[in-house]
Design a protein around this nucleic acid. Structure first.
Lengths: 221, 221
DNA sequence: CGGTGTCTGTGATGAAGATCACAGAGAGTA
DNA sequence: TACTCTCTGTGATCTTCATCACAGACACCG
């Protein structure tokens, strides 16, 4: 059961829920539950069956593939207002998770039981369309990712990653490496190169982009 | 308008169409058209808008990402009974193709106009579920592919590819390289290695697996 | 202040694959 | 048979990236 505050925040993050008839929304509120998860928690993991459909209110989830040797690669990131498409895939395809989800910051989310998800999905076009749009976006992302990993050099991928974030960037080289599926040293060296070009200024846990134009050009964006 | 023979073959390949009410099936048959495409044709290409929803009766389509330098990587293959999920994604997300589709053998297919697709999708659960299952399967495939490309060595990927095909394998090294997103020479050398292990026998446009067990084991299957 | 842990810089070394450049082998065709 | 294609084998070389091994830098905390 969701309290009033949560209900209104849910509607704010997921406007498509407004299109549901009031009765349906009521029963959604009744069957759902809220969850709080600290940062760095494994929310779901490879080969796990899927519990329910999460609606993120705050925080973010990194969806990653982990390699046996400890390296990892980020597939995509789930933000509030989105939902984990992997979960939809599990629920609809009756399969198991094929990747790992880790909370990046503390999460606040509403968990919709599988049955409610199926009901909503079967009955309401708005909900279906929402899920489908997410699906289709993720598919696009993944195809981009595949071709980036297969054909692009790491320096370009790194440049792209950096310009895609908000400017003074607070993160570690290791985190960037994990996002790219590479090793920390490589990222350090490449960043040094960028700095020598005058494109960025480096500091501890900080990267400041000083020449966005050149960096974008290099990233072929 | 589809003729009777085509209609029955369509139902054979796409059993879920049987679950549609007869009237709906009629109008589908009326609005759809058949298409024949020779082998090696680009059926759709990156950044193209999407025309309609193809239902494959025979032949197969390779869906690939092409790199600027001429190399390519196969994302997946569309077989009769399946449908191109990229197309669904385009139609539902109102985006453009993010990859290229090339007919492998001559294609025979039924093309459903976009409007019919949307009608079917909106009205009929059987059709929706079908599309969704495909979506979910592709997503799984793509995630596997990403992690293979990012973390696996080429020899393992090649081994896996070979054991996944029917045994005496008629294909060129170049074709295998294209499927893996690599270069022909590398594939040749790796195959030579497999042959030296006694796992395969090589001939012109032919690879015969002589020790499936070892090859599978090597591929970690 | 010193101690501890995390983050970063950097050299050395190695492995996997890409690229280039041909040579030779099969197979089809005039 | 000779000619021509395509397919395959193979060496040499180069780039990129991974890995290992530390050292220094910074930040926090007792």
């Amino acid at each position: 059961m969701l309290d009033n505050d949560t209900q209104s925040r849910l509607l704010q993050q997921y406007p498509m829920l407004r299109e549901l008839p009031a009765a349906e929304r009521e029963s959604l509120h009744a069957s759902a539950s809220t969850m709080h998860v600290p940062a760095g928690t494994v929310v779901f993991d490879e080969n796990q069956p899927c519990q329910g459909f999460p609606l993120l209110l705050s925080g973010s989830i990194r969806v990653i593939k982990a390699a046996p040797n400890g390296r990892e690669l980020q597939l995509y990131r789930v933000l509030p207002g989105e939902s984990c498409i992997l979960t939809s895939s599990c629920l609809l395809g009756h399969t198991r998770y094929q990747a790992r989800g880790v909370s990046e910051e503390a999460l606040e989310m509403v968990l919709l039981p599988a049955t409610s998800f199926h009901t909503l999905f079967g009955k309401h076009e708005a909900f279906r369309n929402y899920v489908f749009l997410l699906f289709s976006d993720r598919l696009t992302d993944l195809m981009q990712l595949v071709s980036a990993v297969a054909f692009q050099k790491l320096d370009q991928r790194l440049a792209r990653l950096i310009v895609s974030k908000s400017n003074p960037l607070h993160t570690t080289h290791q985190a960037l490496a994990d996002e790219l599926g590479s090793a920390r040293e490589i990222v350090s060296r490449l960043l040094k190169g960028f700095a020598e070009q005058g494109w960025v200024k480096l500091g501890r846990e900080q990267i400041e982009v000083t020449d966005t134009a050149s960096l974008r050009k290099f990233a072929e964006l």
